[in-house]
Design a protein around this nucleic acid. Structure first.
Lengths: 350, 350
DNA sequence: AATTGGCACTCGAAGAGGTAGAGTGCTAAT
DNA sequence: ATTAGCACTCTACCTCTTCGAGTGCCAATT
């Protein structure tokens, strides 16, 4: 799409005005606010052409224009200029993320929290998918006769535990031995290569009958696999209710209904990021309006990005806001949150 | 408050009608729906007296009556008759709660989930406060030089872990030794009796300089204390948007804004349950309308109850719905969820 | 004394007009 | 190519009216 210079200016002005007022913008008010050196009639002609190109549209015959999804897309791709965050914003984000942190998940949660606070929109963060991380330790210990604790430590510094039932008569030593053998043979294996069969074959020369052993190993296996579950942090849903686009209750209901299923939203974002055309430079990803295939989010945009944990793992973080949003500002905020999060994770894990 | 028989019937009929229609109920429609053997004029007189008693009120002069908070209270305390859950409901709750469970927290989350689904309202569940539980195991193990994993096991079957930094030169054996000593001296102590001083005094005769030791012990202490944090599960907020009482966006916004701070809601419920006059028989607790001191919840009611983990620990579970709700039905649902949850927790932990 | 029929009155919900204002597209002039 | 001018179009908002469900009170009845 290549527009002549003035058309670009007009489109940009329309998007800017509409974003700040949420009212359709007409030729006259466009003249008033921006200093175009042409008359409103000329702008009307330009606007008619922009409409023909599908970049803007009228809610009804005698109303001003609003950007279409395509218009926003054009704006985002080639019109907007990047925002520079204020020192205050940066400070706020930094302190927000590093506030009372014990584990990586605290950082991620804090990042989501901060992002929702500074943007005023819904924030979304996914913990990294751990299939690529490898097992570094696996310990089983007796808690009381018949119960044992399995602790799994992964390369990313992630720890998962589970209390499992074991046959009553097993001794501490036996458990210890089994645990050692399993650990020895699985250590260093990526999570997605560990199957029930790999676990079982780890223990060949134990004096225990197979049936018992299998029970224990199954539990160990489940514990390992449990580590693979992603957590989702979704915050600030209620903030969307304040926006004029959701003043009709039904829209708001649909929107919040969809967002309530955080697993679904997470799945969508993860899919986006896995086959993502935008993200060549490991930058942000943007989806606008109808580009989003979730129900009730037709008036929204996603801005998401990727953060890293160690060398191989990555998670997603970003926001869901109205498509009528200050893209440049929000993008810089998301970007800065990502940088800060990356730094803090590095600090915490090394 | 002692009402004559007919007044009771009238109040009950008004509550029932208003709950099902959400429209103010007038004398005429009251006659139509229920078979009172008096005329509408008589009912009008009765209603005027009920209004004088503060049990019902008019939204405006020429409208029907709606129950006041006091009216609902009277209804709940002495008018309503208990509901019997259908087999289908019970089945649904049972399978909902015991679905794919690994830990106690899974049960609690499932219970919250199920409760929101069957009631159609917001559900709330708090994990038990663990201050009364005692430490059963504490293990520290080296992950790599400079990093150790601390695992704390509590009596309730709760496990918490944390990766901590340790001085680089510490050996596996040293860590093991410290961990053993701390464990030996803290084992069996309730969480709220463990302070930084108790932790420190546990290790007297180690050949390590105090400053190092203190660092490690501090981390152990933090890990233990971290176990004391409550988790909150709050689900189904968006369902309230469908109710007529929240069709005005501002109310809905206030409501969801308050509910977004789940820590605050949790604190409120916990306080309720700790100095709770209702709960003599360890039954449910009900708060109606203005009795609730949280902003934006004036049109809501809480119905909460207590579930048990082991002998000493207890958590809370319940719902937040409109005060115009089918109390009898919802109470039985909450009660059945509590019973089922108790059973399942017992099954899981013994 | 309690109940009832009747009646005047009240108030909100809902629909019907009417107007103002911000927009548009088109045409003819520059 | 641009612009001034004009007729036209729609919505948002206001007012007015009507309708109906409801009330309170009074006088008659049981």
């Amino acid at each position: 799409m290549s527009l002549d210079n003035r058309k670009k200016q007009v489109l940009q002005a329309i998007v800017d005005d509409y974003v700040s007022t949420s009212e359709p913008v007409g030729s006259k008010s466009l003249i008033e606010r921006h200093n175009f050196s042409v008359s409103s009639a000329t702008l009307r002609n330009e606007m008619a052409e922009l409409e023909k190109l599908g970049l803007i549209e009228k809610p009804h015959t005698s109303a001003g224009r609003i950007p279409s999804d395509k218009g926003y897309r054009e704006y985002v791709n080639s019109l907007m200029r990047m925002d520079v965050l204020s020192d205050k914003d940066m400070e706020e984000i930094k302190t927000g993320i590093s506030d009372s942190v014990n584990q990586i998940t605290d950082l991620i949660r804090n990042a989501a929290n901060t992002l929702s606070k500074t943007t005023g929109y819904v924030s979304l963060a996914l913990t990294p998918k751990l299939t690529k991380s490898y097992l570094t330790q696996l310990k089983m210990m007796m808690i009381e006769p018949g119960k044992a604790l399995v602790v799994v430590v992964l390369s990313a510094g992630v720890v998962k535990d589970k209390i499992v039932r074991i046959p009553n008569f097993l001794t501490n030593e036996q458990i210890y031995q089994i645990s050692n053998e399993v650990e020895k043979s699985l250590c260093g294996k990526p999570l997605d290569e560990i199957t029930l069969i790999t676990v079982s074959s780890a223990v060949k020369d134990t004096p225990l009958p197979d049936s018992l052993l299998n029970q224990i190993l199954y539990e160990a296996y489940v514990t390992i696999k449990q580590a693979d579950k992603l957590d989702v942090y979704l915050e600030g849903e209620h903030k969307l209710l304040a926006l004029p686009e959701f003043k009709e209750m039904n829209r708001a209901k649909d929107l919040l209904g969809t967002l309530a299923d955080d697993g679904m939203v997470a799945g969508y974002v993860r899919e986006l990021s896995s086959n993502n055309p935008d993200d060549k430079n490991n930058q942000y990803m943007i989806r606008i309006g109808q580009e989003i295939t979730l129900e009730g989010l037709e008036e929204c945009s996603f801005i998401t990005t990727t953060y890293n944990v160690g060398d191989v793992l990555s998670g997603n973080i970003g926001i869901i806001g109205p498509k009528r949003m200050e893209y440049s500002k929000v993008i810089s905020q998301v970007d800065f949150v990502r940088k800060t999060l990356n730094d803090e994770i590095k600090k915490l894990t090394e």
